[in-house]
Amino acid sequence: MAGPMHALQAMRAIVWREVAKFSRQTGRLVSALVRPLLWLAVFAAGFRNVFGMAIAEPYDTYIAYDVYIAPGLIGMVLLFNGMQSSLAMVYDREMGLMRLLLTAPLPRPWILFSKLTATAVLSLLQALAFVLIAWAIGTELPLWGPQTPQVLLALVSAALMLGALGLLLSVHVKQLENFAGTMNFVIFPMYFMSTALYPLWKLEESGAAWVYQIARFNPFTHAVEWMRYAMYGKDPGWAPWIVLGTLALCFGLAAWGYDPQRGFGALTKRGGGGGGPPGGAGG
Score class of each variant (00 low, 15 high):
G82K: 06
P189V: 08
P149W: 05
V224N: 01
L143F: 15
G96A: 05
R93A: 15
T139M: 10
S23A: 12
L176N: 10
G263R: 04
F179P: 00
A134D: 05
K202M: 13
V30A: 15
W241K: 03
V50S: 10
L197E: 02
S23C: 07
S123D: 06
A196M: 01
P240A: 02
A120M: 06
M190V: 12
G145N: 12
I74Y: 02
M98G: 13
G274V: 07
D235P: 00
T148A: 15
A164S: 14
E177T: 14
K269C: 04
G46K: 04
W210R: 12
T103L: 09
F22C: 08
I55A: 13
R48V: 09
C250G: 00
A154W: 04
W241H: 08
M183W: 01
M53L: 15
K202E: 13
G96E: 08
T221H: 04
V243K: 00
K202N: 14
F179H: 13
T26Q: 05
A281W: 04
Y258E: 05
M183A: 10
L176A: 12
L165M: 12
G166F: 07
V50R: 08
G3P: 00
G72Y: 04
L106D: 02
S85A: 14
G272N: 05
W210E: 14
L37P: 06
A223K: 03
A88V: 09
V77P: 02
V34Q: 06
A13N: 05
A208G: 09
G275N: 07
A56S: 11
M5T: 11
Y191F: 15
I69R: 07
P199E: 05
H6Q: 14
L200V: 08
A120V: 06
E177D: 14
F179D: 12
L153P: 00
W226V: 00
P71Q: 08
T139P: 07
W238I: 15
V90F: 07
I55V: 15
T221E: 01
I133H: 10
F179V: 15
V19E: 08
L253W: 08
A281V: 01
T246K: 00
A136P: 03
G3C: 10
G72I: 09
R99S: 14
G252Y: 02
F217C: 05
P142R: 12
L200C: 07
L162F: 03
D259W: 04
P199T: 09
L78T: 03
R28E: 14
I55D: 15
